[in-house]
Structure formats: C-alpha cells, structure tokens
Computed example of a mutant assay.
Amino acid sequence: MFEYLPPLNDHNLPYPDTIHPIVVHFVIAMVLFGVFCDILGSLTRNPRLFEVGWWNLFFATLSIFIAVLFGQVEAGLSEPYAAARSALNIHTLLGWSLSAILAGITAWRFIIRSRDPQTLPKAFLGVGVLLSALVFYQVYLGDKLVWVYGLHTVPVVEAIRDGALR
C-alpha cells in the first residue's frame, strides 16, 4: 500500500514545502484584522467597518479548517522528538479548539449582524479581544515548533532519520 504514496523529501513531506503556515497566516491576518475593524468601527461608529470585520471573520472560519487539516498531516509527518511533543500537542489541541471557537463566534456574529448590522455589543468586542489573545498564543506555539524545535527543517529531519533525536 505504501508504495503508492509519494516519497518524502528532505523536509519529510510528500510536497515541496509546508502548506500549513501559508494557510494559517491567512487565518491569523483575517481574525486579527476582523477584530481590529470591529473595535475601530465601534469607536468611530462606522458600520462599514463592521461589514469588513464580518467578512474577515467569515473567511477566517472557512480557512481555519483547511489550516487544521494541513497542520494535522504535517504534524504527523514531522515525527516530533521528545522535547517538541508537548508544544506540538498543545498547538494541535488549541488549533482544533480555535476552529470550534471561531465557528461559534462567527455564528454569533451572524446572528448579531442579522438583527442589527449597525452596532456590536461590548461583550462581542470583549470576546474578540480574547480570541486575539488565543491566536497570539497559538502563533507563539507555532513559532516555537519551527524556530526552537525545527520541525520540518532539513537539519532536524536528518537528525531524526539518523536516530540522533528521539
């Protein structure tokens, strides 16, 4: 069965480079910009910014599921060594959690938008700030996996293949 799968490259991937970071950076930007637009729209009383915030949140919600899918595949192919496992496990759990949280917040936002597109409750803005904090923590964990533990970098992949890392 495994002979039908493409061979893994020097990044331990069946394709040229990691896809998860590309998609996830899109999600990060959309969430943070959406929250920023909502807060700015509330401060300036400009409902057009609420529309920008809504569409950013909507597309971030669609995209996060693609990011989580590629994240799962690439995490499995990374063959994490002992020191990286804890951070990878938390990053994975938070990624799945964020997809559910973001979907819930987007559904809430849809209801708010359907009832009154001209205002946003302060509670929603507060949840947006908390969502941003979770996103920043997730970014920290992802950066740690790449820049500290070197997952999917050529030297670390070679060390794992040679048995130097377990």
Rank of each mutant, 00 (worst) to 15 (best):
V154E: 15
M30L: 15
S132D: 06
A103G: 11
W96K: 04
F50V: 01
A87P: 02
F124C: 00
N56E: 03
L165Y: 10
I66N: 01
N56L: 10
N46P: 02
S132H: 04
H25M: 01
I66K: 02
L57H: 09
T44N: 09
R109E: 12
E3P: 09
I22L: 14
L32P: 02
P47V: 04
R161L: 03
A103M: 11
I22C: 03
L13H: 07
R115M: 12
F2Y: 13
T18W: 00
D162K: 15
A164W: 13
N12T: 02
L40R: 13
H91V: 01
F110M: 10
T44H: 07
F26C: 05
G128M: 06
F124L: 13
A87E: 13
N12W: 03
P80M: 07
L62C: 08
V135N: 04
L5E: 12
L49G: 02
L40P: 01
T44E: 13
G150D: 09
P14T: 12
Y4R: 15
G76K: 03
P14L: 12
L5R: 13
I28M: 11
Q138P: 06
L120M: 10
A87N: 13
V127D: 04
S42M: 08
L130K: 00
L49A: 04
Y149M: 07
L32Y: 05
F70C: 03
R45D: 12
G34H: 05
M1V: 10
L94I: 11
E51I: 09
V146Q: 10
